[in-house]
Amino acid sequence: MIRFIYVLIFFGLLFQAAKACDVCGCAPAGNALNFLPEFQKHFVGIRYQYQGFRSLPHEDHTNTLPTTEHFYTFQAYGRLVIHQRLHLLAFVPYRVNQRSTESDALNLSGLGDITLQAQYLIFNNYGTNAKFRNALQVGAGLKLPSGKFDALDDGLMIHNNMQLGSGSFDFSANIIHTLRLKAWGLNTSMMYNRPGENVYQFRFGHQVNVNTRAFYLHEMKKLTLMPQVGCMYDFAGADYLKNVSQTHTGGNQWSLHAGADVYFKSFALGFQATRAIHEHMAEGHITSLTRFQCNLIYFLKHKPIFKS
């Protein structure tokens, strides 16, 4: 019965987050899983992400100006450990998108696209006496078109990248491996995202993300500090409109990131900064700014709902 109540509370929290944004409207967001600690614990959390870009006009739009885009995402997310090996995750983003030129500015805010994800723990020897401890999990996700994707600016449809949502059902798959040797660890993940087509027959290009980070667990009296550094590769295919590949879309990026997580009792607080070191996006017309992310997680319960 208590397990059932936990399920209800979890989905109840999600429902409240979605309902709260019904009035404002809604967005596509990168839901990189990042590092999710403590495999066997349910959690709820909030996450703040910032992404910025500078865009140069291309030859199709000779009368437009360079723009700077800022994307702020406030995300409620959580994990429900259904079984020792099966975890469900949900991400509910609230997005604030801003675009500015020398002459004007555009602001959009509202509920973004909600993502549901299932992770299956294939292998885990944490808690054993093994010298090298490994955990391997695979996952699949579905992004729902809950974000508004037809916002207008002075009567003209706003660019797809600036909309709060993609208007499509997107499928994603991932594989995550974590290796620990004493206090040192290495976390590696690969994620593939296959966006669907929206009612305008527009489809964002598929995306691949490979991320690896080294971390160190420094135990203190009442808290644990986990500094980490890593490297990430992102690839995005060209967008498609009516099955025609769009120019000045897609690209790839190499970036470095550094951050730290702090664990205190049932809380985990994290911060990360990411900086591109090499990129070629939209045929060189887009450059990215330094990205930031911070998150606060509260672990709800120590045991899975159903034990094996």
Binding site: D60, D150, L152, L156, M157, V199
Partner: peptide, 10 residues
């Protein structure tokens, strides 16, 4: 049934 339709052709 769409509230807005963006047309973009070359």
């Amino acid at each position: 049934d769409l509230k807005a339709y963006p047309y973009h052709e070359h």
